[in-house]
Design a protein around this nucleic acid. Sequence first.
DNA 1: AAGTTGACGACGA
DNA 2: CTCGTCGCCAACT
Length: 107
Amino acid sequence: MSDREPSFSQAVYDIVRAIPCGKVMTYGQIADKLGNAKSARAVGNVLHINTDCVNIPCHRVVNRRGKLAANYAFGGTEAQADRLIKEGIRVEDYSVNLSIYGLPNDF
DNA sequence: AAGTTGACGACGA
DNA sequence: CTCGTCGCCAACT
């Protein structure tokens, strides 16, 4: 039985879901927490494929520069930026200040 | 099973 | 800063 679900995607969901409101995390940080610092690509791929933006705050996930995703599940980057703003995050040119909103790797 | 894709990261120019 | 290239990994076809 069981264990059919890829642990990787499950782990990604768990972390993304754990991101507090008003904060953002990068793919690289998530990958690092997964134990695969180089799998940032795989992280984005999993989120892209599933697009559980309804159950998972994937809009709080941005790339290393704090830039928003290019193909956000619903509405595109503009929708992602809009949600971040509504959570109290200042979004400039579809990018956020990781120095302020970026979570610590220790989280 | 093998090859392609992709919401990335780091480095070089 | 932007652009191009390489690498790395999981999921998709």
